[in-house]
């Protein structure tokens, strides 16, 4: 591993992932445990890139059934209607509440897609050893981690609609098969964002600058 000049790793120091204490491990091979809180120390999150890729690919695969299958099934005396995430947004829009339609569109469609794209972009640039825009890419991973939870919105909406609209035979709403896949996509992308170690961005940038022989 090539660590960025000025980084803790380049000075033989490692920060505890739990309590943030900076300590000097006895051996470089095995970082051991944090003297303050006893947590296992690691120079970088172990197998961060593989784990993040695995979770990301799983999320991308499950994104298909999450959007194709209905999330809500509404039964009335005369009809039965199935709604997917997207048709739910359209329904909200056509019934006159466009601000809510926009909120659900952003939380359920744009944030999951944005997360998949942003994490894939950062992973590819790290693996290609890119040195450009390290600060922006670090900020991007922080944003992905911060906004990821908002995708859970539609799952909560569906839960409360199902819980409340139980007036059979007049009208009743049941969860569709899509909701569990959608929930899985949200959980997997959140885990993917957390398993990515942004320090790898800076390590890759340092390795590139070493190779190119530029002073750092």
């Amino acid at each position: 591993m090539t660590a960025q000049a000025g980084s803790a790793a380049a000075c033989g120091l490692v920060a505890c992932g739990d309590c943030a204490l900076v300590s000097r491990p006895a051996s470089a091979a095995a970082a051991g445990h944090c003297p303050r809180c006893g947590a296992a120390l690691a120079w970088r999150q172990p197998r961060s890139l593989q784990r993040t890729w695995a979770l990301l690919v799983a999320a991308a695969v499950l994104y298909v059934p999450a959007n194709v299958l209905p999330v809500l099934v509404t039964d009335t005396l005369v009809s039965s209607q199935s709604d997917t995430i997207m048709s739910g947004v359209v329904l909200l829009y056509t019934t006159g509440s466009w601000p809510l339609a926009l909120i659900v569109l952003v939380a359920s469609v744009m944030i999951p897609l944005g997360k998949l794209a942003a994490l894939a972009y950062v992973l590819v640039t790290v693996q290609r050893g890119s040195a450009a825009n390290a600060r922006e890419r670090t900020r991007l991973t922080r944003t992905v981690e911060f906004i990821g939870r908002w995708s859970m919105l539609d799952v909560f909406v569906d839960t409360f609609v199902v819980a409340l609209v139980q007036l059979s035979p007049l009208m009743s709403v049941a969860p569709g098969p899509g909701v569990v896949w959608f929930m899985a996509v949200v959980v997997l992308t959140m885990l993917a964002a957390r398993s990515f170690d942004p320090r790898l961005i800076w390590d890759a940038a340092a390795a590139r600058e070493d190779r190119d022989g530029r002073p750092r």
Binding site: I103, T159, F160, V161
Partner: peptide
Amino acid sequence: PWAMTEVLLLGVLVALTKI
């Protein structure tokens, strides 16, 4: 990260408007 009270609140409000 898994304690999502603010997302939950917005979800309940959207559900309220839907119903």
